[in-house]
């Protein structure tokens, strides 16, 4: 017994509480490892998004008119842009609340906001991984870049930014859900945003009353900007706006979503 007490006595209380960065990276590291080591998460995520991709590419795609642009070229940039809306980030956050992980975090001398920052960093990385899977499968089924290397890189950069915005949205949904099951349900609530947008079909094919919403909501701007950058200027005619029109709008939307949900989530999490 005294030997054990001696071993514990070798631990000295740390001189300083952890920094924001140490806290964020520690928690992000745990979240990424959790994802990578949980086959259900890794496989289910990849399979779901690939399934959507293949169904639209081969089942619905033939019936959707996208003018001079091949449907696969129309579809893949859009899926890459919105992978964050398909992520299970909200469920992960709700689970951490359920299992007492957040209570432990909040009882530690960490800067509380840094915990969510770490979660957001991890979730952004995981969403980006999903984007990568989408692009690989996309290339296999015929997708090609037409807007040059710079355009493609810019498009990819935007995808990562959107991923960060959606990561914060998912964190907020997870925090208000109350349980993992509820978080799963709430996760579906973003589906109208995905489907009533130009992600899968051109907005012009929708009924007139739906078009104003579809045209002006964030997903359409995000999808449009990535598409325009990746496919090149020739597609501007099809998309109805210039590349910069889409890019500026998507940046504004993405910044708004990120700031709004980062603020709301952090307030909810740090509040006593």
């Amino acid at each position: 017994m005294s030997r054990n007490a001696g071993m514990l006595a070798t631990i000295h209380p740390p001189a300083h509480p952890p920094t924001v960065w140490a806290t964020a990276t520690t928690y992000a590291g745990r979240t990424v490892r959790q994802f990578v080591r949980t086959p259900q998460l890794l496989i289910v995520n990849a399979v779901t998004s690939t399934m959507f991709l293949l169904i639209f590419r081969f089942v619905f795609g033939g019936a959707i008119q996208t003018g001079p642009v091949k449907y696969v070229d129309f579809l893949i940039p859009a899926l890459a842009a919105v992978s964050g809306l398909f992520s299970t980030g909200a469920v992960g956050v709700a689970e951490d609340a359920d299992t007492g992980m957040f209570d432990r975090m909040r009882s530690l001398p960490v800067p509380r906001a840094a915990v969510l920052l770490g979660r957001a960093i991890a979730d952004t990385a995981l969403i980006t991984w999903g984007t990568f899977v989408t692009l690989v499968v996309g290339f296999i089924v015929g997708f090609r870049v037409h807007g040059g290397v710079l355009g493609a890189l810019a498009g990819l950069g935007l995808c990562v930014l959107f991923a960060a915005s959606f990561a914060w949205l998912q964190i907020f949904l997870g925090l208000i859900a109350g349980s993992a099951q509820a978080a799963q349900g709430i996760g579906f609530s973003v589906f109208p945003l995905i489907f009533v947008s130009s992600a899968y079909v051109p907005v012009e094919s929708m009924p007139g009353w739906l078009q104003p919403f579809a045209e002006n909501q964030p997903v359409t701007a995000m999808v449009g900007s990535v598409r325009a950058l990746v496919l090149g200027g020739d597609t501007e005619a099809l998309l109805g706006h210039t590349t910069s029109w889409f890019v500026v709008r998507s940046l504004a939307w993405s910044a708004l979503i990120l700031v709004l949900f980062a603020t709301l989530s952090t307030r909810k999490f740090t509040k006593l």
């Binding site: 300083h16 520690t26 530690l108």
Partner: peptide, 11 residues
């Protein structure tokens, strides 16, 4: 790994 994580979060 669990213990190292929490130890890091203690500072």
């Amino acid at each position: 790994e669990n213990l190292v994580m929490v130890a890091r979060l203690f500072g």
